[in-house]
Computed example of a mutant assay.
Amino acid sequence: MSGQAEVKVKIPFGNKYLDAIFSVPEKKSTYGVILTHGAGGDMNFPHLVSLAAYLASHGVLCLRFTCKGLNIAYRTKAFKTVVEYLKLSDDYKLLGVFLAGRSMGSRAAASVIRQLSQDDDDDFIQGLVCLSYPLHRPKLQSKLRDEDLLFIRCPVLFVSGSADEMCEKQLLEDVASKMKAPKKIHWIDKANHGLAVKGRTTDDVMEEINAQVFSWLRENIELEHK
């Protein structure tokens, strides 16, 4: 894709480093997105690569990172470290960022936003993008992972499959109706938790997701600066 560069970085995290990649737009960006993967895989998961490239080619800086580990507290701590890293970066001076994640990564992002909003009144974080938010375990609809969502005040976008076995449509709509934050849900028709749809190519589904995420980001950045 034209109009962007990829810059690999290692972000200090405790006594280790997190591997990360900046997708940098041609023109200086004032807003960014921090993006991470689900329970499996890493930052090179095709959906993340596609979204990062799309955002950068439309003028939004994207920093995606890998954090292995299935412990949500650990993943949240890593995400918080990446937020601080970008906030203090001399190379990329941003007015604000949106946190985004796929599946477990979106849970970690929600948890970071809740923690940071309790710590201070910082408005660096502008919003949350949840790709396939895992609202419950498969067939365990009685235990919802909604506590962080109910605390968040910044705008939230959910992109989920209408046939996601970890996010029953009606349950997410019920949770959204209780949220204090401005929120939007975009349902990918007949998609499962991996956002795969029978009869549609991955690229076709990603085009829909990328366009939705970008238009939502643009609306929220414009609202902020009217």
Rank of each mutant, 00 (worst) to 15 (best):
H47S: 05
Q212V: 09
L99A: 12
W187P: 11
N71D: 15
V159I: 13
F98N: 04
E165A: 08
G105D: 10
S50Y: 09
A73M: 07
M166Q: 13
G194N: 14
L35D: 06
G194S: 14
L223F: 11
L88A: 13
C62P: 00
S23F: 15
L86Y: 08
K27F: 00
L195H: 05
C130L: 06
G194A: 14
L144Y: 01
D146N: 12
I209W: 00
Y17A: 11
V175G: 06
R107M: 12
V60I: 15
S162K: 03
M104A: 08
F151K: 14
Q4Y: 15
V156L: 07
A20C: 01
V129L: 13
V175N: 05
A110R: 08
G69N: 02
L51A: 06
H225Q: 09
G101E: 07
L223E: 13
F22K: 01
T30V: 00
D42S: 12
S160M: 10
S132G: 15
K226M: 14
R218T: 11
R64F: 13
S2K: 13
E165V: 08
S177D: 09
R218C: 02
F214H: 14
N192D: 15
K178T: 00
K180T: 10
N44T: 13
H225S: 12
A181G: 11
K93A: 01
Q115W: 09
F13L: 05
G127M: 09
V112I: 05
G3W: 06
V9M: 06
G40A: 09
D119H: 11
D164A: 04
V82L: 00
N192A: 09
I11N: 08
Q126R: 15
D189L: 13
E84R: 04
S117G: 06
K226G: 11
K10N: 15
P25M: 08
A5M: 11
V175F: 02
Q4L: 15
R145A: 07
D174C: 03
G32V: 03
K143D: 11
N192E: 04
F13A: 08
I72A: 03
R64K: 15
I152Y: 00
E207L: 12
H58D: 05
R218A: 10
G3N: 13
L150S: 01
E224C: 06
K10Q: 15
V205E: 00
P134N: 02
K28A: 13
L18R: 07
V49C: 01
F158D: 06
E222F: 03
C130M: 04
L95P: 03
P155K: 08
T202K: 13
V60C: 07
E222Q: 12
I72E: 05
F151H: 14
E224P: 00
Y85K: 01
E26D: 13
L171F: 00
I113N: 12
I188Y: 05
K139N: 12
L86S: 02
V33T: 04
Q118R: 12
K80Q: 11
C154W: 01
Q170N: 10
A108S: 13
C167V: 00
P138D: 03
Y92N: 03
F151C: 11
K80A: 15
Y17G: 00
I152M: 03
L150F: 01
R153V: 06
L140P: 03
G40K: 02
P155G: 07
